[in-house]
């Protein structure tokens, strides 16, 4: 590995030597400054332009759209006041999908926090402690992150719908249920998939945070007779709590946007009982069913979600920082 690295380094060095003009004149200070400025502008121009278009522009347009209505006769958006907000709020109680979407989003968030997060921390801790098989688990758990989400979900679907029933049939269990079909099994399977596929990235983050913990604190704890269990709860968790806080805070926003890979699994045809708020909004603007007339209500829904998520996020952050664990 090191050899390859050195090889690449040497290759680029050779090219740089060839490209560097000999007997170069020393540049004046102002010329160097100007060159540096041009360089920084060039480097920053694209990301700033991108941010202007895809962040500022889109958000401004979304806010504007939330107050407009599409007129199919003219092909133009026209002012619609607060009607889109009203329509969306009414739809919360009149459409059949909304109760499912809210319930499923909540389930996904809570299971992520109360099952996913502890599991991630425990696994990260074991890897941090370098238990036997650490390398193997690291690769296996991180594998879903390396592959594209679409590929992972397709593989998972084939495994669940093809391999799993076949395995159970071989074991003598006839009529093993399709875990990606029907109101009983589908969403729990999706939750499992979300936990499994999201494992790797969190593992890396927590693992990195844990490896930043001062070894002397661990040593001191051990001298005081701290068990592995105590080390985890009394040193590691409090010290990496800012990282955990970040995940919990991001999760609040994710509550409204997480589409739980449903589009990868079912396209725009996910049954209502599997839908989340994120998926509901996603298919409103993507896919063959979406039309320009759907955008305003989707924008209004997005703004309503932001109005709920923003203060909630700040509150959760405050509470976690105020009442979260600290090293004694």
């Amino acid at each position: 590995m090191k050899g390859i690295k050195n090889g690449i380094k040497d290759f680029f060095y050779d090219i740089s030597v060839k490209l560097t003009p000999k007997n170069k004149k020393t540049k004046s200070h102002s010329a160097a400054k100007r060159e540096a400025l041009i360089f920084y502008i060039c480097i920053l121009a694209l990301p700033i332009l991108q941010m202007c278009i895809f962040y500022i522009g889109i958000n401004v347009n979304t806010i504007k759209l939330a107050f407009e209505k599409y007129n199919p006769d003219t092909g133009q958006y026209v002012w619609n006041g607060f009607n889109n907000f009203k329509d969306f709020i009414i739809s919360l109680s009149t459409t059949t999908v909304m109760p499912y979407a809210i319930k499923n989003s909540l389930k996904l968030y809570l299971i992520g926090v109360f099952i996913g997060l502890p599991l991630n921390l425990i696994f990260a801790f074991f890897l941090y402690k370098k238990v036997p098989g650490t390398g193997f688990f690291r690769v296996i758990l991180f594998l879903p992150q390396i592959l594209s989400g679409v590929v992972t979900s397709i593989m998972f679907a084939y495994f669940v719908e093809g391999a799993v029933p076949a395995i159970f049939e071989k074991m003598g269990v006839a009529d093993f249920p399709n875990l990606l079909s029907g109101p009983v099994y589908t969403f729990p399977t999706i939750i499992f998939y979300c936990l499994w596929s999201g494992f790797g990235s969190q593992l890396i983050i927590y693992g990195t945070a844990m490896s930043g913990v001062d070894e002397s604190l661990i040593e001191a704890g051990k001298l005081d007779g701290l068990s592995t269990f105590g080390e985890f709860f009394k040193i590691i968790v409090p010290l990496i709590f800012p990282t955990i806080t970040t995940y919990l805070v991001i999760g609040i926003a994710g509550f409204f946007t997480n589409q739980a890979s449903l589009y990868n699994f079912f396209g725009q045809n996910a049954q209502e009982y599997t839908q989340t708020l994120g998926y509901y909004l996603f298919v409103k603007v993507v896919g063959s069913k979406a039309t320009l007339g759907d955008y305003p209500v989707a924008s209004a829904a997005g703004l309503i979600f932001t109005c709920i998520a923003a203060p909630l996020t700040i509150l959760v952050k405050y509470l976690l920082e105020r009442f979260g664990p600290s090293v004694e």
Binding site: S153, I154, F156, A157, Y158, V160, E161, G162, P165, N178, L180, S181, T186, F265, F266, N269, Q271
Partner: peptide
Amino acid sequence: DDAAYNSGSQ
């Protein structure tokens, strides 16, 4: 055919 209800892969 049971595969007709494989909503994720069929």
